[in-house]
Design a protein around this nucleic acid. Structure first.
Lengths: 360, 360
DNA sequence: TTTTCATCCGTGTGCGTTCACGAAAATACA
DNA sequence: TGTATTTTCGTGAACGCACACGGATGAAAA
């Protein structure tokens, strides 16, 4: 009899069904499927043909039940300075994925590196490799070191996914992140939209900032490109703050704000530090200046709810972490193909919709 | 020996472990866990205590492998008029969930009803109930009929989740949808932001529109509330178009557009029909009017990319479908608790970020 | 012909559950 | 006390798959 397992109309085909149709035993089919040899070319071809014909889909449940060994994954991301840090967020997503996949034997080992110190990245990667992970998720924060690591991983045939930033030239399993240039472009659009055309806008970088430099650069490019293409007459200030201190900010911004002909109407900060500017705006009572920044860290959330920040651009860091692990899982356990470049959406957050952006 | 299954350090505890510790057989433990009687109070308590002590987590894989019977779910949503219809989107999400959960024996039966005809809802619900589903996902499009159905489902002890609209007073497993009022409020904010304060804005309803009326009402309320609270001096036109025809629209809008003192600067349509207005704007060359509407149906996508629409508010219908099924699954198979009111995010879509809103 | 060895393949066991079946223990009734 | 019931429990076979082990076959070497 074929199989009457689930009483559904379209019977699920099992290894046994293939075996019967091919006139061999399930052991043989198994050897073919995992191609671990010990089977003649002839029967191998026959089996493969039938597998294809019946469109056999292995039962993941039974598979990982039988295959009772662990599957170690490694995660390599920057250390979060505190609980409000950006890098807590991918971690949340990763942990959620880890919980869901514990059933399938997935075990995740975390390694953190210091964003100030390249050597910690390399040594963390070495530690990660020490326990022979079946897959790695990491953030290629330091480009050179990451390229080297990626090449090593390729040699060792360990699949890896990148989150947050991309290594374009490298053949990874997948990249999960946002399009930084486009997000800057979007920020330009939003700032342009909400400020009078005859006033100026500024982009402000924090100089001490060591966060993902290539991202910052590309966000800035996108922002500037927007005005080039859509409003070239707009006066633009490109500012750099050497300090995060409010007094320093005041000394930097006040001269720009004072200009009479083209007063400053909006400020864009291409990372999560926008809340610093919000603090300045509040302390010095400059309400009315429009602010756009990045990321749903709690200080920013507070500022946007208080009406100090107009827009936050959000790159779904939790989703990056979650999907990153999920992609590894699907590749290793379910042998599925992955999407090479998987851009997360660029969310526009305002005071009005922020409460509905809770990632679970 | 305890168990050395996964070679992990913290051993997964199995039914067998509980049985041994309680001095009974696994059959007994099983009976206790599924409390299907035939076990004395005394041993039941003992087993339960040990289950709790060891924090036993059943192995879903083994469970659904052994439990080879099907789990039928029913889905009850409005019929999509065509492939570009809004109601295709939740369906996509539902189907994605269905594929993932086929492994666990989940089988979904679809029932569609006509948005013009209440009786089709009732009869579809009857059909759905006919094959004793273990869970139902439906859209309570017709409130009265839905309340009745919900009460029936409660009696029959069939868990159900609602998508798209909510039945507040009803005790459902979960509601998945957006906050309609707040999305209208957000639309007000956006339109206010991108139009000069001394010009007027309009909200336009299509009269023939039979789509989810309570949603439309609440979106409108939110929109009006925004202006009441934030810009009460703004001139507001509340329009109703009896026809979707461009000529009719022209006859309706032209007088409003012509006003010299407070020319019309923006139009809000509280549903996916905004593309009709876009067509009108283009044909009658009224570029410069800002448009805000709902939903990523392809006609709207086209219009937003062409620069005719400024913003689309998106309620993630695919996610509603996906999560709806997922919630049922978790409740029925994994016996997890669900979140009663699960609002999806209210996404702001512009020409700049639309390409990154592909749901998979 | 018998022995040796490599190649190819089938059988059987176990993964953690579920559930039917029937046996044992406890209780009822005579 | 013995028998009939009822209650309570243990046993074993699946579910689909992975893999170890050993058996069969045929060709080459003795």
């Amino acid at each position: 009899m074929p199989n009457k397992s689930k009483k559904g109309n379209n019977p699920t085909i099992r290894i046994k069904d293939i075996a019967e149709k091919a006139g061999v035993s399930i052991g043989t089919v198994d050897r073919v499927l995992h191609n671990r040899g010990e089977v003649s070319e002839k029967t191998k071809k026959k089996v493969l043909a039938i597998v294809k014909e019946l469109n056999y889909q292995p039962n993941l449940l039974a598979s990982s039940l039988a295959l009772k060994k662990e599957i170690p994954f490694a995660v390599l991301i920057p250390k979060a300075h505190d609980d409000d840090s950006y890098w807590m967020k991918p971690l949340d997503g990763i942990q959620k994925a880890a919980n869901e996949m514990a059933q399938y034997g997935i075990r995740i080992k975390y390694h953190f590196f210091d964003m100030m110190d390249k050597s910690t990245f390399t040594s963390a990667m070495e530690k990660a490799l020490a326990d022979n992970p079946r897959g790695i998720l990491f953030s290629p924060y330091f480009t050179n070191e990451s390229v080297k690591a990626a090449e090593l991983l390729q040699e060792m045939e360990i699949p890896f996914v990148l989150i947050d930033s991309n290594l374009k030239q490298i053949d990874k399993l997948s990249y999960l992140g946002h399009d930084a240039q486009q997000s800057g472009y979007l920020a330009g659009r939003l700032l342009d939209l909400c400020t009078p055309k005859d006033q100026s806008v500024a982009i402000l970088n924090f100089g001490k900032e060591t966060e993902n430099l290539s991202h910052l650069k590309r966000r800035k490019e996108g922002f500037l490109t927007y005005f080039e293409q859509n409003n070239p007459n707009r006066e633009l200030h490109v500012l750099k703050s050497e300090d995060e201190d409010v007094e320093y900010l005041a000394s930097l911004l006040t001269p720009v704000l004072r200009k009479d002909k083209m007063p400053l109407a909006g400020i864009f900060v291409p990372n999560s530090k926008i809340y610093r500017v919000a603090t300045f705006i509040k302390q010095y009572e400059h309400e009315g200046i429009h602010l756009i920044g990045y990321d749903l860290i709690s200080k920013n959330v507070e500022a946007i709810k208080g009406g100090l920040i107009d827009f936050l651009v959000c790159q779904r860091p939790e989703e990056q972490g979650y999907k990153g692990i999920y992609t590894l899982f699907e590749h290793v356990v379910a042998r599925k193909e992955a999407i090479k470049e998987n851009f997360t959406s660029i969310d526009i957050i305002t005071r009005e919709n922020i409460d509905y952006y809770r990632f679970l």
